[in-house]
Design a protein around this nucleic acid. Structure first.
Lengths: 199, 199
DNA sequence: GTTAACCTGGAACGATCGTTTCAAGATAGT
DNA sequence: ACTATCTTGAAACGATCGTTCCAGGTTAAC
């Protein structure tokens, strides 16, 4: 029958994610994508549709590949507060060093940009925030069951606080915030939720 | 001598701030600016220079006009924790209702976008974060002197936490977060810093 | 009233934007 | 080998991008 694709769409999408993640939707041109992926305009449009659709696909790809697995691990971790601490450690490490250092989080970036004008994009952003909050909530419920939380700490609202904090980390890391400083800050916030030191 | 400007550059800059604030640098065209301000391309370029310089001027204008006064009020407030609470109340109100509802913070938005690539812009962003952190720190030092802080709360690191939290509020408000929910979350975080309830 | 200095309107610049088109090439079934 | 079907490369589309230029108008000092 027909000819078959001469490239791997998923691998191409990975490359596209990198571009949109780093530069955002408006600042990334089709030419950038063509140059970086190596495939040409025809294949791009035939496979993914236009730029907006390509961005949506890239955003979903990011969430499924980069965000969801980490959140799932957090939600299923049985250790309580140490799981939350480890989550933030990994987050700060990813944001400040390695291949994607200083890129921030593609979801956070999208919320701050004109990308969020698109309804489909907005839906993905809201869903991801809910996942983040729920994963944090699950870990905190575990922590509460293990007696790791202070008397005034309610898992639901504490999860909200930590979710906002994660967004703050994503943002500041892009602007070059020091990893140790971020770590110190997050640690302080977590200690605040825990039991007071043998009061 | 020469002819004089037929418009008020500061008023024009206010309009430009609105555009860049809402849509970011890349998604705002010169044509948008011409249409919205009503002034001509020639006047624009003669007064402000190119687009990049105009964005820088708008960002500085935003910081000086919208951000700095609020931070100054926070830093000089003698009430301690209530001052911090009021700061966040005002922040959430501005972010979720009124003329600039759902616009987020222009500084936060810039950090998440390609705008932060410019060194001059980055310098403004860093300076503003420092101002935010310092103002929060001053208010917390006051709170500590008044005995409003819990035994484990260090003003410096707590200021870092609250600064990150503010960025989180800025981000989530743009995506349509509920004002009451944000308020509840921030209140919980502040209670966490305060003295434990007559323990 | 003349002149020198500046501002404004609007056309126009080349470059790049996202997108489309089409001929040539490649594949799998008959 | 032939054909139907899809992919690929490259050129080209109109639109818009940020920017420049210049003629005409306006101002204030002499």
């Amino acid at each position: 029958m027909p000819d078959i694709k001469h490239f791997d769409p998923d691998a191409a999408l990975d490359t596209v994610v990198g571009l949109f993640w780093r530069q955002g939707l408006a600042a990334t041109g089709i030419q950038d994508i063509v140059s970086e992926t190596g495939l040409n305009r025809s294949s791009l449009y035939a496979t993914f549709g236009g730029k907006q659709e390509l961005y949506r696909a890239a955003l979903r790809h990011y969430v499924e590949q980069r965000s969801r697995p980490v959140l799932r691990r957090l939600a299923e971790d049985e250790r309580g507060l140490p799981a939350v601490a480890e989550f933030f450690d990994g987050l700060i490490r990813d944001r400040c060093s390695g291949a994607h250092a200083r890129w921030g989080c593609m979801v956070s970036n999208a919320q701050a940009g004109a990308e969020a004008g698109d309804a489909d994009v907005r839906a993905v952003l809201d869903a991801q925030h809910r996942e983040l909050r729920d994963a944090m909530h699950a870990a905190l419920v575990t922590a509460e069951a293990r007696g790791q939380l202070g008397p005034g700490t309610v898992p639901a609202t504490a999860a909200d606080v930590l979710a906002l904090l994660a967004h703050g980390v994503n943002l500041r890391s892009r602007a070059g915030a020091d990893a140790q400083e971020l770590s110190r800050t997050v640690t302080a916030a977590l200690e605040c939720l825990g039991s007071p030191p043998t009061a």
